[in-house]
């Protein structure tokens, strides 16, 4: 589904990703953990080309998406297939929840308005916000905004969903509602890559946990194995701090 080969990313002199190689299978849920600054966000952002990797290759369904000829059309095509949910929601504040969701399918995929609206309402229903269609983001709680953001990404019918600390900006009482939506997605077979500090979620939903530190994947395993029996000393040190 997603194959990453020896991915490197530099920001100027700063070497942030130092050779990441991994394969993500269809329907797999992969959780990425690791200390702040280890390159988790940068890795996700490379996967939908919000950041251009310095070197290395990314294949999505067998297609090499790193078009170094700067072919923007193909970049947009990649992004259509890879949804991302940000820590800070990034909803469009001047649009209602419904409009937030239906806009991209209409203008990018040219879905007719009636169809896009119907799909958007179905998605709102799926994230439990059918009654908030006409609300503006400023009228929604953080948890509700993040659920709309998930629906917005799903509206493009992506093949992979990326989540970058989707609950980190939320008050504790709202974390559950967002995680529940994500668990539902996982159950429905969505391929997901999730950066999170929610170890309960990782244990329950993840097929595989990657531990990243200093721009490399230090260790990976099933959540049960990784949490109870970490091999690498850096993994041990990190887990002892957060568990």
């Amino acid at each position: 589904m997603v194959r990453v080969e020896n991915l490197h990313k530099h920001f100027g002199k700063l070497h942030v990703l130092k050779g990441i190689t991994n394969r993500i299978m269809k329907g797999e849920v992969v959780v990425i953990i690791g200390p702040s600054g280890s390159g988790k966000s940068t890795f996700l952002r490379c996967l939908n080309l919000l950041e251009m990797p310095t070197s290395g290759d990314i294949y999505i369904e067998g297609v090499n998406v790193i078009n170094r000829g700067e072919n923007r059309v193909s970049i947009n095509k990649v992004r259509e297939n890879v949804g991302i949910v940000f820590q800070s929601f990034n909803l469009f504040p001047h649009m209602t929840a419904l409009r937030n969701i239906e806009l991209a399918p209409m203008i990018v995929r040219r879905v007719p308005e009636a169809q896009a609206r119907e799909d958007a309402l179905a998605l709102l229903n799926r994230v439990g916000l059918a009654d908030k269609a006409d609300s503006y983001p400023s009228q929604l709680s953080g948890g509700q905004q993040q659920r709309v953001a998930i629906a917005r990404a799903l509206a493009m019918k992506p093949k992979v969903m990326l989540f970058d600390e989707p609950t980190s900006a939320l008050d504790p009482e709202m974390i559950g509602e967002v995680l529940d939506v994500m668990k539902g997605l996982a159950r429905d077979g969505m391929t997901m890559v999730v950066v999170t500090h929610e170890m309960g979620f990782a244990r329950e939903v993840a097929d595989r946990v990657l531990f990243m530190d200093d721009g490399v994947i230090v260790e990976e395993n099933t959540p049960a194995e990784l949490f109870s029996n970490p091999q690498n000393p850096r993994t041990k040190a990190f887990l002892s701090k957060i568990l």
Partner: peptide
């Protein structure tokens, strides 16, 4: 910047992001 990124990550072009997301705000 997150607004541009949200638009681009949904597959919108630079022009579409300007027109629908950035300029109205």
């Amino acid at each position: 910047k997150g607004q541009t990124e949200a638009g681009r990550s949904l597959g919108m072009t630079y022009g579409q992001t300007m027109r629908y997301i950035i300029l109205p705000q």
